[in-house]
Amino acid sequence: MLPRLPPLSTLRTFLVAATRLNFRQAASDLHVTPAAVSQQIRSLEDYLGCSLFERSPRSLRLTPAGMALLPGIRDGFACFAEALAQLPAVRPEGTLHVGAPAAFASRWLVPHLGEFNRRHPEITLHLGSAPDYVDATVIPQPLIPDAVDVLIRYGHGHYPGQASLRLQTGDYLAVCAPALWRPELPFAAWLARQTLLHDASIPLPEQRPNWGEWCRLAGLDGINCRQGPSFSNAVLVHEAALAGQGVALMQRAHITDDLADGRLQICHRQALPSAYAYYLLLRQPATPAAKVFADWLQARCASADIVTPPDNGAA
Rank of each mutant, 00 (worst) to 15 (best):
F53E: 06
L297P: 00
P131A: 13
D258G: 07
E239L: 08
T169M: 07
F116T: 12
Q86S: 14
T169I: 04
P273Y: 06
E184K: 10
R4V: 15
L236W: 06
L165R: 14
M67F: 06
L197G: 00
D75W: 04
V90A: 09
Y47M: 07
T137E: 12
R269F: 09
P288S: 04
H156I: 09
A27I: 08
A240L: 05
G72H: 12
A192I: 05
A218V: 01
V32W: 04
S43F: 08
L2C: 07
R91I: 02
R107L: 15
V32Q: 12
N233Q: 13
F80M: 10
P288L: 03
A36D: 04
L5Q: 14
L259F: 03
A179F: 02
Q86E: 14
A260I: 11
P7L: 10
A26S: 09
W181L: 12
G219N: 01
T195N: 02
V292S: 13
A81L: 09
A314M: 10
T256E: 12
V148A: 04
E45H: 05
L197T: 00
T63S: 13
A189E: 12
A240T: 03
R216G: 13
E122F: 05
G157M: 05
P121C: 08
D29N: 12
R216E: 14
V98R: 00
L282Y: 10
W181T: 07
A65N: 11
R283N: 07
P111S: 12
A103E: 15
L236P: 01
F23A: 11
P310I: 06
Q245I: 03
L281A: 06
L165M: 14
S129V: 05
T19P: 00
S230D: 13
A35S: 13
C301W: 09
H120E: 08
A105P: 00
A248G: 12
C267L: 13
P101C: 00
Y154W: 11
L180V: 03
G244D: 09
P209N: 00
I123N: 08
N117P: 04
T13Y: 03
A241T: 03
T63H: 02
D295Q: 15
L280F: 03
F14G: 04
L191Q: 06
T63R: 06
V235E: 10
L264K: 03
A260S: 09
G66E: 01
V148C: 13
V150C: 08
L242F: 08
C79N: 10
F116N: 08
T19E: 15
A100W: 00
E54I: 13
S43M: 08
G76L: 00
D257T: 12
A218E: 00
L281T: 06
I73P: 01
V307N: 13
A286S: 11
T137N: 09
L11Q: 03
P186N: 02
A241E: 02
G128F: 09
D257E: 15
A299N: 09
A85R: 13
L280T: 07
V307L: 10
A234C: 02
F104I: 01
L127N: 11
R4Y: 10
F77C: 01
A240D: 05
L15D: 03
Q86C: 11
R153E: 06
R269H: 15
L220A: 02
D171V: 07
R107W: 07
R283F: 07
